[in-house]
Computed example of a mutant assay.
Amino acid sequence: MTLVTDVKLAANGRMLLPQAVRDAMGITGETRIIVTVDGTDVRLSPIKNVVSKLQALYREHATQDADSAAFLEERRADDADGQDAKV
């Protein structure tokens, strides 16, 4: 569904998203959103949607089952390798 509407921007930079926009985005109550600026275009994405997309992307590309401890150990090893390379 495509929804086009205009919104007034106050002098202090605040704006109110109309109810129709919030409904179309699935926003209820107080919600954090991600604001993406591409040139003069702005995209608003509820953070829960972005997290869901990232989780799906991870599941699609994860090649091994690893826990957070293994992940942190790998990052520390990467950091140690980087430290050795500094001159």
Score class of each variant (00 low, 15 high):
28 T>V: 06
41 D>L: 06
6 D>W: 11
25 M>L: 15
44 L>I: 10
85 A>Q: 04
87 V>S: 14
86 K>W: 04
72 L>R: 15
59 R>W: 07
54 L>E: 10
27 I>W: 02
66 A>H: 14
12 N>F: 03
65 D>E: 14
12 N>M: 06
63 T>G: 15
56 A>W: 03
40 T>S: 08
49 N>Q: 14
35 V>M: 07
52 S>H: 06
68 S>D: 15
82 G>S: 11
35 V>Y: 00
79 D>G: 06
50 V>K: 04
62 A>M: 09
71 F>T: 12
87 V>Y: 10
14 R>A: 05
19 Q>N: 05
60 E>K: 15
35 V>P: 02
61 H>Y: 11
37 V>F: 00
40 T>Y: 03
37 V>S: 00
64 Q>P: 02
83 Q>E: 12
78 D>P: 02
31 T>S: 00
46 P>C: 07
36 T>M: 13
23 D>S: 07
22 R>A: 04
74 E>I: 13
68 S>T: 12
59 R>I: 02
45 S>A: 15
33 I>N: 04
55 Q>W: 01
20 A>P: 04
7 V>C: 01
18 P>F: 03
83 Q>N: 05
73 E>Y: 09
14 R>K: 12
25 M>N: 05
58 Y>L: 11
63 T>A: 14
22 R>K: 09
40 T>I: 05
60 E>Q: 10
6 D>H: 14
11 A>W: 03
79 D>M: 10
42 V>T: 08
46 P>V: 00
12 N>E: 09
51 V>Y: 00
80 A>E: 10
73 E>D: 12
86 K>G: 13
79 D>F: 11
38 D>P: 00
27 I>Q: 01
40 T>L: 02
70 A>C: 03
64 Q>H: 14
62 A>T: 05
7 V>G: 02
24 A>E: 02
21 V>L: 03
45 S>N: 14
43 R>V: 13
67 D>S: 10
35 V>I: 11
65 D>C: 09
12 N>D: 15
86 K>I: 12
14 R>M: 08
69 A>F: 13
20 A>D: 08
37 V>I: 08
40 T>W: 00
55 Q>N: 07
33 I>L: 13
26 G>C: 04
30 E>D: 13
45 S>T: 15
31 T>I: 00
79 D>N: 09
71 F>G: 09
16 L>E: 06
29 G>P: 10
45 S>L: 12
1 M>N: 05
38 D>C: 04
52 S>R: 12
35 V>E: 04
59 R>F: 02
46 P>E: 03
62 A>Y: 04
85 A>V: 03
77 A>Q: 12
76 R>H: 08
33 I>A: 11
8 K>C: 07
80 A>W: 05
23 D>N: 08
48 K>T: 02
81 D>P: 04
65 D>Y: 10
6 D>C: 09
50 V>I: 13
37 V>K: 00
49 N>F: 11
53 K>Q: 13
